[in-house]
Design a binder for these strands. Structure first.
Length: 572
RNA sequence: GGGCCUGUAGCUCAAUGGUCAGAGCAGGGCGCUCAUAACGCCUUGGUUGGGGGUUCGAGUCCCUCCGGGCCUACCA
């Protein structure tokens, strides 16, 4: 029995996320949270929307809405989609919450008082027509290197040369197209990460069990070139956490907000506080997860994220925590993911390429997506979604191997006995061998789940499903029943109990189907199995069940072709 | 440019430096008939991207070349 704090990288507010985003953080985090709860651990699973920053402002403007309204609306949309995918957050917060405003300012103040924040005067491009400073990539112009006329201020996409916005020929605002740009001086706060480099490096060096993807990115940023650099944590924007506030250890920062990457990870903590507020609990309820001086010392904290998020979670956020010199909980394990590509290219939010969360749910139940995405999670390298692979995997694994198993057992029992667990007979050697094999594989499955080795866990689970079919085939109760109904009864009793066992073991991956399996078995007992031999006696002779409808309908070729066409190009 | 990851069967992926490189799917054959034309058994298929090196032994370590991907700090 442990206490496990789980956070998923928080999705940006600006639109509906695609399957690549989903499989890179929220979905595996949910798998782990569900598993940990099933094992009896106390779990706090936190996610939120990341709402600040330039893209949110621009998306709101495009939608013709005040940014606060836009974010509130999109938060609702994302929350509903998360529920649709059965993401079991204890709380789905908002980085624009009052809690996060206060806590972000608290951290900034503590860092300032500890001498870890400096002011830097810099020159930035200001667009008069847009009345705002422009981030480098929101400035377009002609590349001085290759002549490409849509080069961005940070890099030319055509020749990949790194650029400074002032390098561009004929620069213009990417927002309005205006060429009325000027360079203005502005002052910003910088987090002095350089002075924390030693502490952070020592901390990372101690994390020898982390995925290589996580540590290699962290070490690259720590050691590359001149090493870890100080980082600007404020921006000239209206939408965000105000930098100037009563008690702030600096002056003259009116009109500026904290950079989203400063306040977004703090939202993990704030969202837990939001959870305490929403459930009518006091501060101690969330502090026991986050303050090592208030009960969090024995918490295991695991983060999930795509590889693009790794630098912020291995360096910037820890710098914030460590630099505060307050006893906040640091992450214990970071599970990071590569990217999921879509049919030979990248998923693209801007181009609407690929399958987005709302579209996915509109064509198939969540379990189909959960199974495919998790069993193909991009753990070691980038992975690829193709409709052919999706159809083949889902039809084989879910419909043929698992769904059909449930179907054949329940229908046979109903036909030859009744819709109750048949009594009589005893487990023969074949059954005992099956149980021994299940014992081994179930323990292996647990090992993979605990190590958050997702593909391996999925493979083991599938193997466990297959054992049921192998057993039935060799036991052949349909033949035995003709001469020895009692022996057949024992086989069927085992089969029905397997359905319940499979429901419990599969629930973290496919929660809806698992619930239907348990309901069909008229079983409330979803307890994680101890010894398998014991778990397979949960449904005693005489226990009623209901033969369920088809658990997973197969994806037809025509459907697959239709979807492949629909999602190939621009999002409707 | 620099760094990191990656390349294994038609496809998706496994293999602490140590039996003959293994699974699943697809393909082929056989069996079964309870089941969603489902299930089971058997089976074809590989110069582990190319080349060189270290080693008693290399998919694994080193060098090099080729291909794919990611990151490179102001999108998040």
């Amino acid at each position: 029995m442990a206490r496990i704090l789980i956070t998923s990288a928080i999705p940006y507010i600006n639109g509906i996320k695609h399957l690549g985003n989903l499989v890179g953080s929220q979905l595996p985090a949910d798998l782990y949270a569900r598993y940990a709860r099933a094992r009896g651990h106390e779990v706090m699973f936190i996610c939120a929307t990341d709402e600040h920053g330039t893209p949110a402002e621009l998306a709101a403007a495009k939608a013709g809405k005040p940014v606060a309204d836009y974010c509130a609306e999109m938060h609702g949309v994302q929350k509903e989609l998360a529920a649709g995918f059965r993401l079991s957050f204890d709380h789905f917060g908002r980085s624009s919450s009052a809690r996060n405003n206060a806590l972000t300012q608290h951290f900034a103040k503590a860092l300032g008082e500890n001498g870890l924040i400096g002011e830097v005067a810099e020159r930035q491009v200001f667009s008069v027509a847009d009345n705002r400073f422009l981030p480098d990539r929101y400035i377009e112009g002609t590349c001085p290197n290759c002549g490409y006329d849509k080069a961005r201020g940070d890099q030319c996409e055509n020749c990949t040369k790194q650029l400074d916005p002032t390098d561009l020929i004929d620069p213009r605002s990417a927002i309005s197209g205006s060429t009325d740009l000027e360079v203005r001086e502005t002052r910003h706060l910088y987090l002095r990460q350089r002075s924390l480099k030693g502490e952070i490096a020592a901390w990372i060096d101690g994390k020898t069990d982390w995925p290589i993807l996580t540590t290699s990115i962290a070490k690259k940023w720590l050691n590359d070139g001149e090493g870890l650099q100080d980082r600007g944590i404020t921006r000239d924007l209206a939408w965000g956490v105000p930098v100037q506030f009563p008690g702030a250890p600096w002056q003259g920062m009116e009109g500026k907000v904290f950079y989203v990457w400063f306040d977004a990870p703090i939202e993990y903590i704030s969202a837990t506080a939001e959870w305490a507020d929403a459930t009518g609990q006091g501060d101690s309820a969330w502090q026991r997860w986050w303050r090592t001086d208030m009960g969090a010392a024995d918490v295991r904290y695991v983060q999930f994220m795509g590889k693009d998020n790794v630098p912020f979670h291995t360096l910037s956020f820890p710098a914030t925590i460590i630099g505060s010199r307050e006893p906040w909980k640091l992450v214990d394990y970071i599970k990071s993911f590569n990217y999921l590509n879509y049919d030979g290219g990248q998923f693209s939010t801007s181009q609407g390429r690929g399958v987005f969360m709302d579209q996915a749910l509109s064509i198939l139940p969540a379990d189909y997506w959960r199974w495919w995405l998790l069993s193909h999670a991009p753990e070691n390298s980038d992975a690829e979604f193709t409709w052919e692979n999706f159809q083949a995997s889902v039809n084989k694994d879910l419909a043929d191997v698992l769904g059909n198993f449930v179907s054949r057992v329940t229908k046979f029992c109903r036909a030859k006995f009744a819709e109750t667990v048949p009594g009589g007979g005893a487990f023969d050697d074949r059954a005992l061998a099956l149980i021994a094999e299940l014992e081994t594989r179930t323990r292996a499955y647990e090992g993979h789940m605990e190590a958050i080795d997702i593909r391996k866990a999925a493979g083991e689970l599938r193997g466990i499903w297959t054992l049921g079919n192998e057993y039935l085939q060799s036991a052949a109760p349909w033949s035995v029943h003709k001469t020895d109904p009692e022996a057949a009864a024992a086989m069927v009793r085992l089969g029905l109990n397997l359905i319940r066992l499979y429901a419990v073991l599969s629930a973290p991956f496919i929660p809806d189907a698992a619930a239907r399996m348990l309901a069909a078995m008229h079983c409330e007992d979803g307890a994680w199995p101890g010894p398998v031999a014991e778990a397979l006696t949960a449904l005693p002779p005489g226990h009623p069940f209901t033969t369920p409808d088809v658990l997973f309908a197969k994806i037809a070729d025509e459907e697959r072709e239709d979807w492949a066409k629909r999602f190939s190009g621009v999002r409707a």
